[in-house]
């Protein structure tokens, strides 16, 4: 029987640390199998060979933060059947989205001696702010198990199994003692999207929200609790919500509520 034509995979990078696309190469046990099921057609970090599009599945890492990337992401959409945005940069603008709260013109001279050579947008924005995205994987970085699940689901034509609950629930499933209630350690677990497996509380520290907000998070209630019971100050609350997913609407609004 002739071998079925394999779907074509492309991996695109925008402003990012490379960590999320590295998650694909970090699938040491699955990588050769994935390459058997998908034709890895465009993946510059891994190969100098380029197979022309269109592509069946495009993984998009990074945020839109430079002028030349605005038309490039449109082109990615035009030549891709299914766009999967991976990681906090692609889904919320990333840590570089901290510029959205400042004047980027003031930032440039702090890093670069000759600002006239620099091309940067005033803001860092998620992929969904520019094109229609078919599926998002949150996390800084994404969990490679979730990536394998998303790719498998795509191959099988089904919906991926992605828990939408909070890190809190993952803690309960692991049998962790609550670091916030028992130890008074501030924790974003109640408002943060599952996916990491409650890593930080498992290592005796509070969740710092690197998977971004869960659906319908009650951030105001958590802030009130952290303020009244754990004595966190307004600037501390602002910093807590303003990190790797600072641009995600729920975290953005909460951090702005502590701006005075």
């Amino acid at each position: 029987m002739p071998r079925k034509k394999r779907p074509k995979l492309a991996v695109w990078k925008f402003a990012s640390c490379d960590g999320c696309q590295l998650s694909l190469l970090d699938c040491e046990d699955e990588l050769l199998a994935i390459a058997g099921e998908l034709e890895i057609s465009y993946f510059v970090e891994a190969s100098r060979a380029v197979v022309k599009g269109p592509y069946d599945l495009s993984l998009v890492e990074g945020s839109i933060a430079a002028p030349h990337d605005v038309p490039r992401i449109q082109q990615v959409r035009r030549i891709s059947k299914f766009v999967l945005a991976i990681g906090a940069c692609a889904t919320a603008g990333g840590i570089q989205g901290l510029r959205n709260f400042a004047d980027v013109q003031e930032y440039i001279p702090l890093v670069y001696a000759r600002p006239q050579y620099i091309e940067a947008l005033e803001t860092s924005t998620p992929i969904s702010g520019h094109i229609q995205v078919d599926l998002e994987l949150q996390g800084c970085p994404i969990n490679k198990r979730q990536l394998v699940e998303a790719v498998s689901a795509f191959l099988q034509g089904r919906k991926p199994v992605m828990p939408a609950h909070s890190v809190c629930l993952e803690c309960k499933m692991r049998g962790n003692i609550c670091v916030q209630v028992a130890h008074g350690t501030p924790c974003l677990g109640p408002v943060t999207h599952a996916g990491c497996g409650a890593l930080c509380p498992t290592y005796q520290r509070g969740c710092y929200g690197c998977y971004g907000p869960k659906e319908t998070p009650n951030t105001a209630s958590l802030s009130a609790w952290l303020g009244s019971r754990l004595g966190m100050t307004e600037p501390e609350l602002l910093r807590l919500f303003r990190t790797f997913n600072a641009g995600a609407p729920a975290f953005r609004q909460e951090s702005e509520a502590h701006e005075h």
Binding site: A66, L98, A102, V111
Partner: peptide, 8 residues
């Protein structure tokens, strides 16, 4: 694209 770590 520049990401401005030293600034933020």
């Amino acid at each position: 694209p520049p990401r401005f770590f030293e600034a933020f």
